[in-house]
Structure formats: C-alpha cells, structure tokens
C-alpha cells in the first residue's frame, strides 16, 4: 500500500524536499525487492526441499518445511526409475542438432539480408518479419499431420529441417549485427579477390562470435525446454527429458511420486541454470536486440 500512496504524497510536496524523499525511499524499495525475490526464488527452494524429503515428510500435516535427513536417494531413484541419462542424451542430441543448424542457417540468411541485394529483398524481409507473428503452434499441428503421413514422425528429421530452415528471430538478430559492420572490410576482401561465400565464412562469421553464442544458447535451452514438439512428434522411448519427467516416476497405482519427480526436475533444470548463470549477458543481449530494434 505504501508503494502506491507514496508518489501522490510526493507530488503534493514542494520540490525542495526532493533530496529528503530520496533518502527515505530505499527502505521501501528494498522491502519490495525482498518480497519479489521470495516470489521469484521461492518455487525453486520448495522444489529442492521437496526433492530432499521422504514421501511421508512431503505429505505430513502440519507441513515440515525442512527434511529431517536429506534424502539423496530421491535422486538415485530419479536416475534409475526411468532411463534418465538416456532421455537426457536424447534431449542433448536433439538440442545440439537443432542449435548448430539453426545458428548457421540463420547467420547465412541474416548475412544475405544485411550485406547482399537482389530484386524482391524488401518484400522477402517483410515476409520474414511477419512470420515472427504467426503463432508457432498453429503450424505445428498441421506439420504433425503432414509428417505423420510421410513417415517422419518419431524421427529426429523434423528438428533437422527446422534447423536448416533458420529462425526468423535469429535471422533478425544476425542481420542487425552484420548490417553494422563497416563496408571497408567488405571492400578490402573484394580487392583481395574473395567471393561472398569465402567472405562470409572467413570474415563475417568469426566476427559475429557473440551473436553465434547467443543464438546457440537460446536455441539450445529452447529445445531442451520444449515440451509440445517432442510430445507430439516422438514416442515415449525416443522422446526428450522434458516429456519423460512428466510421464514417469509413478507408483504402482499410477500416481506420480512427487519427491522423486522433484529430484528429476532439479536435475533437468541444472544444465539450463548453469548455462544461464555463466552466460547471462548473452541472454540479455538477445532480449535487448529483439526489443530495442524490433
């Protein structure tokens, strides 16, 4: 409540008291930040705590917040109740295939739009921008129907094709980067007799390292986290970790064991969190690139 009423009080105050207000403000701001942090971090903590409890502790009333003894056996169960590492391997392969392909193809397409020209370029760029607005899921279901009729369901081919086809958003990111590189560099390469293909691979691609990394990380975590495409296109034995952790970890009655599933979920998000902690600036860069220039 203090948060909403304060600005009004300020407006009524004469401008001279401005510094005094600033001195008083931080306390409220820090309380607000603390409350928000609980909201944002709380679910993580609760997940980890659940992963360390016995099923009885988890279900006990009144709630016991901390487990009496950390139940590391939940993690063992999560690894062995289903072929965890196998599913993690599927996720890893799929995410790597897609990310490598989509990064290279998007870089090439972005390069084309940034540095080359031919009739129809403007119209094509409008098309690529508007495809960003087509909801993914609308094309996913018809693609599934089509692919199931030509026998491409339950293979990794759809991801190869999606990778080769480039992602409009990443194309945009690469285009912005390549467009900002001075023309002199291009001229020098042309004088040296380099063709566009060689120029792309030996000069522009190495220069775009930060965008390459951003693109790879975004597509990797995106594919690792994707639920609906693997759920639709892959059977349970070939699917990814994302689908598997929702489908397994059941007791004989078919009820999910929450503590084991929590342990599985912890292990499932650890790669994403590690990537995020070490490469946060690349994630921020992508968000910034999309918003400011979009």
């Amino acid at each position: 409540m203090t948060v909403t009423t304060r600005p009004r009080a300020q407006r009524a105050a004469p401008p001279t008291s401005h510094t005094a207000k600033n001195r008083r403000r931080p306390a409220t701001v820090y309380i607000l930040i603390l409350a928000l942090s609980i909201f944002f971090v709380g679910p993580f903590l609760w997940l980890v705590l659940a992963a360390l409890k016995t099923p009885a502790e988890w279900a006990s009333l009144p709630i016991s917040v901390l487990p009496e003894h950390a139940q590391w056996s939940n993690f063992v169960a999560a690894l062995t109740d289903m072929n965890f590492l196998g599913y993690a391997g599927n996720s890893m392969i799929l995410a790597t295939i897609y990310s490598v392909l989509v990064t290279l193809s998007s870089a090439a397409v972005g390069f084309g739009f940034a540095r080359l020209t031919a009739p129809g370029k403007k119209a094509l760029f409008v098309v690529i921008l508007s495809t960003m607005m087509i909801p993914q899921i609308l094309t996913l279901l018809p693609t599934y129907v089509l692919f199931s009729r030509i026998g491409m369901v339950n293979t990794y081919w759809p991801w190869v094709l999606w990778g080769l086809a480039a992602s409009p958003y990443l194309v945009f990111l690469f285009r912005q980067f390549f467009a900002a590189i001075p023309r002199e560099l291009e001229d020098a390469a042309i004088i040296d007799g380099a063709g566009w293909l060689r120029m792309f691979f030996t000069i522009f691609l190495p220069l775009s390292r930060p965008v390459l990394i951003t693109s790879f990380l975004l597509s990797f975590t995106g594919t690792w986290g994707d639920y609906i495409a693997p759920a639709l296109f892959l059977d349970l034995d070939r699917t990814t970790l994302a689908v598997a952790i929702t489908a397994w970890y059941q007791d004989p009655h078919g009820n999910v064991i929450p503590t084991v599933q929590a342990a599985g979920a912890v292990m499932y998000i650890i790669p994403v969190l590690l990537i995020f902690f070490f490469t946060q600036r690349y994630f921020i860069r992508s968000a910034v690139g999309s918003g400011v220039k979009g």
Binding site: V41, P43, T221, G225, A242, Q261, I269, V272, F276
Partner: peptide, 20 residues
C-alpha cells in the same frame, strides 16, 4: 533473481508450481 524464472523450461515450471 528477477530474470531467472523466465528461462526455466515450462515442464519444470509446472512441476515446481504444482508443488507450491
């Protein structure tokens, strides 16, 4: 802290919040 949840995969997010 504020940015972190937005990179959590949807499946993990659902499991977490179901526990909460």
């Amino acid at each position: 802290v504020f940015f972190l949840p937005s990179v959590v995969p949807v499946v993990a997010m659902a499991i977490m919040w179901k526990l909460v």
